[in-house]
Every structure is written in C-alpha cells, then in structure tokens.
Amino acid sequence: MSSNTHARRRPGRRAAVAAGLLLAVGLSVSTQALAQAAVPAPGKAYAKAAAAPRSVSGFNGDPVTRVADFYGAYVDAKDAAEGPDTALAKALRARYLTPAFAKRLALWERANGADGVLRAQNVPVRWTVSEGGNGLEVVVTLTFGGGESPTVRTDLVVELEPVSGDVTDIRTASAG
C-alpha cells in the first residue's frame, strides 16, 4: 500500500484536525475582536505607540532621569488639554530649580518675553534628554512645530548642582 492509501483510510482524522484548526483560529479571531471592542481606539497621537510597545526608564539619583522628569512634567503642565496649569509649572520650578537660578531665570524671562525653562514662547511637541559632557550637565532637545508649520529644534544645556541635583542654569547649546 502506498501512503496515499493510508491517508484515504483515515479521512475522519484529517477532517477533525482541520475542524480543530478552524475552530482555534475562529475563537482567536472572535476573542481578539471582543478584546479590541472593549478597548477604546487610540487617538492620532498614540497611533505610533500602538504599533510597537514603548518604555521609559530611569533611576533615582541619575541626572538624566531627574531632568527628564522635570521637563516631562513641565511640558505637560504648560500644554494641559484644559489650559496651562500655571500652579503646577510654578511648583515644579520651586522643586527643581535652585532659588538663585529661579531669580536669574525670572529676569531672563522679563527681558526676553519667553519661558526660560523652554527658552521659547510656545510649548514643544517632543523632547529628548541625554547625557552631557560631564556628570553635571544634561542636554535637552526640544522640538517645536509640526503639521503644516516648520519643525524647529532647540538644544539646551541644563546644569545641575552636585549635591542636590537641582538646576543651576539653562542655556542654549550654542551659547557656550
């Protein structure tokens, strides 16, 4: 007997395997459809994030993490959906800036008519925080614009106090 004859003698087994596969695929698709129906569709801003999982990590005492925490919360406060949260922005400044730098920053803002932390009149759409040249400097890259307007990138150097880790200066990278 050939192997074809063997297969013809057990047609029920093949049918059962095929039916089982169809059932498994069908259940998987229906379960997936139910799960997707239960989760609201992400907005346009999160469409890219849905494609691949993202993560953000950091650790206590790390200058990059500290500055990233500050800038992330500060940008969120300035660009809140219900309007800028000035009280939160002020509290963040009090928490992360040294008192001496906060005074200098207020003078800079009056002279330049811009937010001194962002070095701009508007709020960035993206930001990146990375290590600077030494352990007490962190580079913050702010990206402004998007859509129809041109994208503008600003690199800031954020200097930190060695013991507390508080911000002692913010300057544009080209300023020295």
Rank of each mutant, 00 (worst) to 15 (best):
residue 89 A to I: 07
residue 82 E to G: 13
residue 103 K to D: 02
residue 104 R to L: 10
residue 101 F to M: 08
residue 101 F to R: 01
residue 115 D to I: 09
residue 114 A to V: 12
residue 120 A to H: 12
residue 86 T to L: 04
residue 117 V to E: 06
residue 113 G to L: 13
residue 82 E to D: 14
residue 79 D to G: 10
residue 88 L to R: 08
residue 128 T to V: 06
residue 119 R to H: 15
residue 118 L to H: 01
residue 84 P to H: 10
residue 119 R to P: 07
residue 90 K to R: 08
residue 87 A to L: 06
residue 125 V to P: 00
residue 122 N to C: 13
residue 91 A to C: 07
residue 112 N to Y: 14
residue 98 T to G: 01
residue 94 A to M: 06
residue 125 V to T: 10
residue 121 Q to N: 11
residue 77 A to T: 08
residue 117 V to N: 15
residue 108 W to S: 11
residue 116 G to D: 15
residue 77 A to W: 07
residue 106 A to S: 05
residue 99 P to I: 01
residue 110 R to E: 14
residue 85 D to G: 08
residue 93 R to P: 02
residue 78 K to T: 03
residue 117 V to F: 07
residue 91 A to G: 08
residue 101 F to A: 02
residue 127 W to I: 11
residue 105 L to Q: 13
residue 75 V to D: 08
residue 125 V to S: 11
residue 89 A to C: 05
residue 76 D to L: 02
residue 75 V to M: 03
residue 119 R to N: 12
residue 120 A to V: 12
residue 77 A to K: 00
residue 90 K to Y: 05
residue 117 V to A: 13
residue 121 Q to C: 09
residue 93 R to G: 07
residue 88 L to F: 04
residue 118 L to E: 04
residue 91 A to P: 06
residue 83 G to T: 11
residue 112 N to A: 12
residue 127 W to H: 15
residue 95 R to N: 06
residue 112 N to L: 13
residue 86 T to G: 02
residue 127 W to N: 11
residue 103 K to I: 00
residue 123 V to K: 02
residue 113 G to H: 11
residue 98 T to I: 04
residue 82 E to A: 14
residue 112 N to E: 15
residue 110 R to P: 07
residue 114 A to Y: 08
residue 97 L to M: 01
residue 107 L to W: 10
residue 119 R to K: 12
residue 103 K to W: 00
residue 109 E to N: 13
residue 89 A to T: 02
residue 106 A to C: 01
residue 114 A to D: 11
residue 92 L to H: 00
residue 77 A to D: 05
residue 97 L to K: 00
residue 117 V to M: 12
residue 126 R to P: 00
residue 100 A to Y: 04
